[in-house]
């Protein structure tokens, strides 16, 4: 036990704040302040949209942790988001559990699936695009299971009537059914997730992941059990994605098979890529911006929106291959 504590202290020891990090932290604090004041001016509709975007940002952060640090791309990441959502829906509507139990069920199932599949793939040396494509296949299989196993998943219709999260603590009552309260809940959790991931990854632990990401053979030669580190990261990312999915299910009220599918998996990669891989604040803000932009653009024209949105993404990838965050970096270097 004592050894574990010492190891943790070494693994997560915090270095001093670098110049670039300071800019990132300032942006994060400013963004949090703006978002915290938003309910004063935003309409109910925009508040609900932004709340969903914040929950999706947690999902994007989970992919950024994995893809940004270890360079391990997961093309079917919505699989875990969907498992979280279904776990919550099945626990609350089928089993009569409280939402807390649903949250744990979703996370536990997603983490177990990731651990089981990841164990066989990662220890067998499956990496890069092979790994990415296999996760995509898993998400397709899961979509089909969700559409077919109707007694549990509700089939193609999905599961309806997922209740909002409600709890009381320290004499305060939180009700997810209330627009403003659920917005602040999502805002708090999204920034908390970002803070935890940022603190973990700027410590030596993040350097280990970075080392594996840039050259796994070298990291293994240095004595790191790279397969185990990747498996832990993959499982943690899956659990975090499931956490986001379970929360999303409580605000949406319904879950359906496409929450496990290719479209959402693609979107989350776009958010992370546009924000800037491995920067955490980038993907978080990019999720909010891209989500809002796709809502607005797809309402402009029902026939032209895929073209407009596609052109915008291409433009960003061409102009800013390292994401929005590179804008700052370039200005600082210039």
């Amino acid at each position: 036990m004592a050894r574990l504590l010492v190891a943790c202290r070494l693994l997560f020891a915090q270095p001093g704040l670098g110049g670039r990090e300071r800019v990132g932290a300032q942006i994060a604090v400013a963004a949090f302040a703006v978002l915290a004041l938003y309910p004063a001016v935003g309409s109910d509709y925009h508040l609900a949209q932004l709340r969903d975007a914040l929950l999706l940002a947690i999902f994007a952060l989970s992919l950024d942790y994995l893809w940004g640090r270890t360079r391990m791309l997961v093309m079917g990441h919505a699989l875990f988001f969907g498992i979280g959502a279904y776990g919550m829906a099945i626990a609350t509507t089928r089993l009569g559990w409280p939402t807390g139990g649903g949250l744990l069920l979703g996370i536990a199932v997603a983490a177990s699936v990731a651990a089981a599949v990841g164990y066989f793939l990662l220890y067998a040396g499956v990496r890069l695009h092979f790994f990415a494509v296999l996760t995509m296949a898993m998400s397709l299989i899961a979509t089909q299971i969700a559409a077919s196993w109707s007694s549990v998943t509700g089939g193609d219709v999905g599961i309806l009537g997922v209740p909002p999260i409600e709890f009381s603590a320290f004499g305060l009552h939180y009700s997810g059914g209330d627009g403003t309260a659920s917005y602040y809940g999502a805002l708090f959790l999204a920034f908390l997730t970002m803070l935890v991931l940022w603190l973990a990854c700027r410590a030596p632990y993040g350097l280990i992941l970075e080392a594996i990401g840039s050259n796994e053979n070298r990291a293994r030669t240095l004595g790191f059990n790279t397969a185990r580190q990747l498996l832990i990261a993959f499982t943690a990312a899956a659990a975090l994605a499931a956490f986001a999915g379970a929360l999303f299910a409580t605000t949406a009220g319904v879950v359906a098979p496409d929450l496990l599918g290719t479209l959402l998996s693609t979107e989350v990669m776009i958010w992370v890529a546009i924000g800037g891989r491995g920067t955490f604040i980038g993907p978080l803000l990019a999720t909010l911006l891209v989500h809002e932009a796709s809502q607005t653009i797809s309402s402009l024209s029902t026939s032209l929106w895929p073209l407009l949105l596609g052109a915008l993404f291409l433009l960003i990838v061409f102009a800013l291959p390292d994401g929005l965050v590179s804008l700052l970096r370039r200005r600082k270097e210039a």
Binding site: S43, Y45, A48, L259, S298
Partner: peptide
């Protein structure tokens, strides 16, 4: 007022919210 559901549950939720509330 027309919106594309994109055959997606999430988009349908978003767009239904826009149509009704906005």
């Amino acid at each position: 007022i027309a919106e594309d559901s994109q055959m997606s549950t999430k988009t349908t939720l978003d767009k239904a919210r826009k149509l009704f509330q906005s």
